[in-house]
Design a binder for these strands. Structure first.
Length: 321
DNA sequence: CGAAAACTGACTTCAGTCGT
DNA sequence: ACGACTGAAGTCAGTTTTCG
């Protein structure tokens, strides 16, 4: 816990628990300069508590290092937003497990992505409430919560609680936003891909066996305005790894499908063509070079990917567009 | 409460394209 | 040549959330 000295924060209390949650250290630290704000609302520290305290920051840091064992550099420090604590302790440590980093950022429609609070992570993943007291945080409670969250992550693997553990949830969020704005969403394509897309209520899903069937279905069923069509066209992706002639033919076919959709779908229809990695980029470039004109009322054509095919190089894991 | 981070959206500027 | 339009790029205020 820290108090404010001018515009900077200074250490006021340090607490440490071991891997079993047993308290190892709970020490108040004397401020080096007159404290301008004890942050009592958050830190729980008051001027009265620090009266008569003589432990210096250097002594507190040495005590922490002692408790880390004979080889402190081999011990793991666990905490939430540890950079603040390490900065206040004037300590560098090579092995840290920071729950603000282990768990994903909160993403908002506006503003920057921000760390999840320890309180929110504890409520969501440990199903318990912390930092309930109006008299400030309790450092031991915070330390135990961070320890439990880090343990939970280690037990369940790095993908635990990460947003891209399920691609479907991202599409579901997008569907919710579009539906809220009055856009009807529909997905056409291979059944495996539709399982990812068909995760939002109110969306339509039409499985089909081939790209040709998908385009025919999209034209037949998607024929009204304010429609978002997800077209899972995999022909070009499946030609990846084959000869240049086969790939060229597949891209030509993709181009024909896109032009057919552009020409026949009504205005204010957004078509998202889902392909895969390198072929998606290649296909998009081909369509642009081909001089394909956007029809009136057509906002944009996007070529993107849902998941890599087995034919794709393993290194190609990032969405291409 | 203030600092920090960095993304969003509104707005402006500029360059290119197109039709008259 | 001119005006209308479009899109890219840059700027900036506002926003959101964290920490203590």
């Amino acid at each position: 816990e820290m108090g404010r000295v001018g515009e900077s924060l200074q250490l006021a209390r340090v607490a440490l628990v071991d891997q079993s949650g047993q308290l190892l250290l709970d020490e108040l630290v004397a401020p080096e300069q007159p404290v301008t704000d004890y942050n009592t609302r958050y830190s729980g520290i008051t001027a009265k508590m620090l009266r008569g305290v003589s432990t210096t920051i250097d002594q507190a840091r040495e005590r922490v290092l002692e408790l880390l064992g004979p080889q402190p550099e081999h011990a793991f420090l666990v905490g939430h937003s540890l950079e603040n604590d390490l900065k206040a302790l004037r300590l560098r440590h090579p092995r840290v497990l920071d729950t603000a980093v282990l768990y994903p950022l909160r993403v908002h429609a506006r503003g920057a992505p921000a760390k999840c609070s320890l309180r929110a992570l504890t409520a969501r993943h440990l199903k318990r409430e912390i930092q309930q007291s109006e008299g400030g945080h309790h450092p031991i409670e915070d330390a135990v919560a961070a320890l439990d969250l880090a343990t939970l992550k280690l037990v369940n693997g790095l993908n635990f609680a990460m947003p891209n553990a399920s691609w479907g949830s991202g599409f579901a969020d997008m569907h919710d936003v579009l539906a809220g704005a009055g856009w009807a969403c529909a997905a056409v394509g291979e059944e495996a891909e539709l399982r990812l897309l068909h995760s939002a209520e109110g969306s339509s899903c039409w499985p089909c066996a081939s790209d040709g069937e998908a385009v025919a279905l999209g034209l037949r069923e998607g024929g009204f305005e304010r429609r978002v069509l997800w077209m899972c066209l995999r022909g070009a992706a499946e030609a990846h790894g084959q000869g240049a002639a086969a790939r060229g033919a597949a891209l030509m076919q993709l181009g024909q499908y896109v032009r057919q959709l552009a020409a026949q779908l009504p205005p204010n229809t957004l078509v998202m063509v889902l392909g895969t990695g390198a072929m998606a980029v290649e296909g998009q470039l081909t369509l642009q070079a081909d001089g394909a004109k956007r029809p009136p009322g057509c906002v944009a054509f996007a070529v993107t990917r849902v998941r890599p095919t087995t034919a794709e190089a393993p290194a190609s894991t990032k969405p291409s567009c």
